[in-house]
Design a protein around this nucleic acid. Structure first.
Length: 484
RNA sequence: GGCCACGUGGCGGAGUGGUUACGCAACGGUCUGCAAAACCGUGUACCCCGGUUCAAUUCCGGGCGUGGCCUCCA
């Protein structure tokens, strides 16, 4: 079976053929590190991690390059830095904000079971690459210098607007923002802008005297080209070299389609004279919380860290695996409604699977699961396939199906040991004294042997009142778990 | 105002021009001292109105609802 992916540019599901099977290349827009990542940020991270794992499975782990950038130049960062550290020089304050946020992001993402991308370039480390692209665009006549800014000339791009399906005329007609006077055309966008004293600044390109900083869109064009073309070149076969400056998949949230990705395409194609930037454009749908849009003003703004560490959502903390499964319960292109109900369902499902599965040993994943993913990452179908494997297990952790389930879960980034460790920790919070439970179980079993069922049931009820549920098993053993 | 999505049974959620998705919950049963687990079984859904068709939840048009983008945004 072949991999088919939905391409936003053509609005259809197409068979995925790598430009160069020896080196499959994917770029995903990562976070702007000014605040803790919210649960909406987690969606593309998880979705494209699944795709990364699938591509590694199909083409070999050493043949897939996955780049996810970190935006650490941004006016929101500047604003946050000035707000949080008013007494520090701005650049020092910015460094603190980005370092803290960056560290938290990586902790969050690791907890969600995501593999580290092949590379995570930072904007600040690629200013020279951006300036080089900007210089090229000006030399090509696709960009111009005005009032110390460098602007991309949208008219230079014949089919600008194709990705987002909008025409320049429509956009100009519908524009609600006043146009900066130095723009030749209302839709022209900034590639470089001058910095005020104290703001982050680098020597400007194009002979501009005032130091400045890059616009937002240029970083992705520059970093994608650096990592997926310039630096990847030596490892490409002739097939890949036949498509200079192009790569296979570009991903991100659907809100990035316009203007971000539209502008990336314009920059890259005009700078390098290519017919395309990426072969496939993939976008995940938006996220709502309990049926409402997530916003600080709605009071339902929720970070990954909140979900992992606090009981602010649903009255309890959640393991990263549960968040991961909850995210995959909905197909990535559908809008997702993030609810406590959804998390509880995911918890229940994962709990069942992990109890049934043998520990994952890097063996081959279930083919039905792989097939579901090959169909444009149909994760709901994937979950149905996992249920089918689970159904074949009659005795927990025994038999081929249990091994297969373990291997498949591990392939998908669900880690049994992590889940159980987390569960144990959670239980420890509920259960003050596990030894006491064992004592009561022994007492109850003694009563059962003497057919004193009244006493046995009394002990069951006593434990139940504290949230502990007992289960008797065939061999005469009794286990307990925390009732939820 | 312009553009773009989405709307499936109690809940979550795929999919399809005519046949059981799947899971959770519910209900009935087997089993069990009881219970849980496990196992077996039950439910016939596709926002509204038109159109195309022998046949539409599935295609087309309109409406309504929700959301997104057009300005920073996953």
């Amino acid at each position: 079976m072949e991999l088919a992916l939905y391409d936003t540019l053509t609005r259809e599901k197409r068979v995925f053929t790598p430009l160069d099977p020896a080196r499959v290349r994917m770029y995903v827009c990562g976070p702007t590190v000014y605040d803790f990542a919210h649960i909406g940020n987690a969606r593309p991270v998880i979705v494209f991690d699944i795709l990364f794992r699938l591509l590694r499975h199909l083409y070999g782990a050493d043949h897939v390059t996955y780049v996810r950038n970190i935006t650490d130049v941004d006016d929101k960062i500047n604003a946050r830095a000035a707000e949080e550290y008013p007494d520090l020089p701005l650049n020092e304050a910015i460094r603190r904000v980005t370092e803290k946020t960056d560290k938290q992001f990586h902790a969050d993402v690791a907890a969600l079971g995501c593999l580290p991308p092949t590379a995570e370039p930072r904007a600040t480390e690629h200013i020279e690459d951006m300036k080089a692209v900007i210089e090229r665009l000006v030399a090509e006549g696709c960009a111009y210098v005005a009032d110390e800014h460098v602007l991309f000339r949208v008219a230079a791009m014949a089919d600008y607007g194709k990705l987002s399906k909008r025409s320049l005329d429509e956009m100009i007609a519908g524009a609600r923002v006043e146009v900066a006077p130095y723009k030749r055309d209302a839709m022209d966008f900034v590639l470089w802008k001058p910095s005020k004293p104290g703001e982050p600044a680098w020597p400007s390109p194009c002979g501009i005297a005032t130091p400045g900083r890059p616009g937002w869109h240029i970083e992705c064009s520059a970093m994608a080209d650096r990592w997926l073309w310039t630096d990847a070149r030596s490892r490409l076969s002739e097939r890949g070299l036949a498509h200079p400056h192009q790569f296979d998949i570009h991903g991100g949230g659907i809100d990035l389609v316009f203007p971000h990705h539209e502008n990336e395409i314009a920059q890259t194609r005009c700078a390098f004279h290519t017919p395309a930037m990426a072969n496939f454009w993939m976008h995940n749908g938006f996220l709502q919380v309990e049926g409402r849009k997530m916003a600080k003003s709605e009071g339902n703004f929720i970070t990954i860290s909140d979900l992992l560490m606090t009981d602010t959502f649903g009255g309890r903390a959640w393991s990263g695996d549960v968040l991961r499964l909850a995210m995959l319960q909905t197909h990535y292109r559908q809008p997702i409604d993030w609810t406590v109900n959804g998390l509880e369902l995911a918890f229940h499902t994962l709990d069942d699977w992990f109890r049934a599965a043998a520990p994952g040993r890097n063996g081959p994943p279930n083919q039905g699961v792989v097939d579901a993913l090959l169909d444009d990452l149909n994760t709901p179908r994937m979950i149905a396939e996992l249920h089918a494997v689970r159904k074949q297990i009659s005795q927990p952790q025994h038999g081929e199906a249990a091994v297969e389930l373990g291997n498949t879960l591990s392939f998908l980034g669900f880690v049994q040991q992590n889940f159980f460790a987390w569960l144990t920790k959670l239980n420890d919070q509920v259960v003050a004294d596990p030894g006491r439970i064992d004592t009561l179980i022994d007492a109850r079993n003694a009563a059962r042997r003497e057919k004193n069922f009244k006493e046995a049931d009394r002990i069951r009820d006593e434990l139940k009142a504290t949230g502990i549920e007992l289960e008797d098993h065939k061999g005469g053993t009794t286990t307990w778990k925390v009732k939820r």
